[in-house]
């Protein structure tokens, strides 16, 4: 039951942060959701096998595929988080004007 519960609390916390105002909370919310999905992926491989998957591992060896998925996902989340942080920087410098005032094709 531990895996689902970890997913649950991470999702709840992440969603709560997403729905609050503020850039930084948005970023952190997505970081938490990213963690939640990683735990979910790991659980999808089966949490009853907990030996590192190396060559010649025993019957307890974990499924290596979800781990590869998680690694990929972590790195993508990292990249996007870094990009979101840029928004944080921009958002701070100038607030967003409502889109209606915008006018204009490419310069």
């Amino acid at each position: 039951m531990s895996g689902p519960l970890i997913v649950g609390v991470l999702v709840a916390a992440g969603v709560f942060l997403l729905l609050r105002p503020g850039q930084l909370r948005l970023v952190l919310g997505f970081v938490l959701l990213g963690h939640a999905v990683n735990v979910l992926l790991l659980a999808a491989g089966g949490l009853h096998r907990r030996e590192p998957p190396v060559d010649g591992g025993g019957p307890e060896s974990a499924d290596p595929l979800p781990q590869a998925f998680i690694l990929t996902a972590i790195v993508i989340t990292f990249g996007i988080t870094v990009y979101l942080l840029r928004l944080l920087r921009r958002g701070a410098r100038r607030g967003s004007r409502p889109p209606e005032t915008w006018d204009g094709g490419p310069r």
Binding site: M1, G3, P4, L5, L10, V11, A12, L40, A43
Partner: peptide, 13 residues
């Protein structure tokens, strides 16, 4: 959170 936990519990492992 509950949905995620339940889904994980029901559909994995």
């Amino acid at each position: 959170g509950v949905a995620a936990a339940v889904a994980t519990a029901a559909l994995t492992g």
